[in-house]
Design a protein around this nucleic acid. Structure first.
Lengths: 336, 336
DNA sequence: TTGAAAGCGCTAACAG
DNA sequence: CTGTTAGCGCTTTCAA
């Protein structure tokens, strides 16, 4: 049998109440008994059950994290930073990869509710908002990273996607590009939409007709990015630069260019988004718009824990600035 | 207040025992009452508390996963497949990135014990074996992926690392290489040791003196791999090929070669290990030894769940075969 | 400073 | 087929 608080109490010759108090540092206990109890707990390798303690109304000390796909480096990196901050604060993370599948999302949310997690962090794509609103109604703390759902009124941490798109396009325009295509992830995502909007804004500012540029929506994967890029590059008026709304797609574009024997950046400039591990590894290294991933993960965890602890009166929306990282996949256009 | 089994019982005009039975499908309940109870649970959006149910001795339906680093694609991919199988079976995963830090490992194990997880899957590096043996003593199911600790006698799923190393070296030797350096991860890891052993075996078989080859131990990262490769390549008798014990290190080697203006594979062949997402993305695409990651994740989860359910009498060690994936980072040596 | 006892939400005999 | 009841391990008044 697992050793319980009763075993400790008996061995120490005190009541379970006393043991409970020394565990939690509550009430007033004589140094003497405290020490004795502590020793005994050590000896018996006693681990208080958070299951039992949670049943009495305390925290479960676990947070759920919903992301599209753990195998996608962006989300793995986010998860890692969230996990780290959680550990520092004494909370564990249960991982939920949804593949942006609303059904799976729902299933996970149900699981998490049944487990009575203290809060849920959401970074997943096209959330079934109904489910989320329900959470809010049930007073389960929710926080968003990487995205925001304005109508939800939840804590959130994200970058200014509009600005990111703007920076990317401006960089290209500054280099002299006038014919800039975009491959974007699902436009139902606010973040994607904003990135494209920023891009368009930069175009307009430069007097370029945005409507005449290629703009395709793509599933977020290297293969699909490649497929779309190939199509673009094979067309009559192929672009001199491609702005991809994330690194995966950008890498697809790079591969497409190679397949067509185009040299990057001379024959084609490519700019990505996110600055994941991958961006530094492709050849040539990818110019991209960086999200401060580590910081974002840390901050959402902080937000949600504050919420859990009831230390917060107001929700907050934190917006961080993206940063253009210039590497070697962009340069001035060779052709006019 | 959260709705409880009592609320349902009252609303349905039955006892909580009855409700419990319909929830769990135990006992004999009339179709009529079952339906009524089910309806009410729906209406009230009732979620049975696994916290409470766990306290009565049932499962917590959560498994802990210890890995070195979630941000490392290999482990992210493993985690993903473990997670997927878990979901199918009704289990959640709590993520623990240890950075191979024994202290952190210990902390996580303590957390997991307190949460009363049903089992722990371990893929982390230099585990403090004492902690693990303790788990076994406390009858907490443990399973290993990617690695094995013979003295532990636990379930495990891994590939034949020796064979993998042998395949890698044989491939290179077959191409005509005679001067093959190796950059390996921490040799305290059994898997690394085996890979190197396999490599040496192939060398001997071909009558090559293994002792005269470079062999450096490196921290597992692109940067460190690069640093070591640079050193090798700058030396007098630089190798014509490098065998790296994982893709990260291999990529470092690729970058080193580029920095020295060596063309891969013509001036230098590089072969990696693991076949992560990265292998297909570097330029040139990496020849590497693949681990069947998805399958491994699935199988450990299966093993540990069987253990949890008490459906197993004997532990088992599952050894899968690695597979050489030839891409474009290897060819015959140009220089003699 | 300590302890007795009620209760958290649910399961599992055991009775009816 | 259904209900009563005694726990599961811990927290928290409330007395002592």
């Amino acid at each position: 049998m697992k050793t319980t608080i009763y075993d400790i109490a008996k061995a120490a010759g005190v009541s379970i109440a006393t043991v409970s108090k020394v565990i939690n540092g509550t009430g007033r206990i004589s140094t003497e008994t405290r020490e004795r109890v502590n020793e005994i707990m050590q000896e018996l390798d006693y681990q208080p059950s958070v299951v039992a303690s949670a049943l009495t109304g305390k925290s479960t000390f676990t947070i759920g994290l919903l992301i599209p796909d753990l195998a996608n480096p962006l989300y793995a990196e986010i998860a890692r930073s969230v996990e780290d901050r959680g550990r520092e604060l004494g909370f564990n993370l249960v991982m939920c990869s949804t593949d942006n599948n609303p059904r799976r999302e729902g299933d996970y949310i149900t699981f998490l509710k049944q487990k009575r997690v203290d809060g849920i962090i959401i970074s997943t794509g096209v959330s079934n908002e109904i489910g989320l609103k329900n959470l809010a109604k049930q007073k389960i703390p929710v926080a968003l990273v990487t995205r925001d759902i304005p109508s939800l009124g939840a804590d959130s941490v994200k970058i200014d996607d509009f600005l990111g798109g703007y920076q990317a396009a401006s960089h290209l325009i500054g280099l002299g590009h006038r014919h800039i295509a975009v491959i974007t992830e699902d436009l139902n995502l606010n973040s994607s939409k904003e990135r494209v909007r920023g891009y368009r804004y930069a175009l307009e500012e430069a007097g370029i007709d945005g409507d005449k540029q290629f703009c395709v929506e793509s599933v977020s994967s290297v293969e699909e990015g490649k497929r779309h890029a190939l199509e673009m590059l094979r067309s009559e008026d192929s672009p001199t630069a491609i702005f991809a709304s994330n690194d995966l797609l950008a890498i697809g574009a790079v591969q497409a260019a190679k397949e067509l024997r185009l040299t990057i950046p001379w024959d084609l400039s490519v700019i990505g988004f996110d600055n994941t591990l991958l961006a530094g590894i492709v050849d040539p290294p990818l110019t991209t718009v960086a999200q401060p991933i580590a910081q974002m993960g840390r901050q959402v965890m902080d937000l949600i824990i504050q919420e859990v602890r009831g230390q917060k009166q107001t929700k907050q929306r934190i917006v961080l600035m993206p940063e253009l990282i210039v590497r070697q996949s962009t340069t001035f256009p060779r052709k006019v």
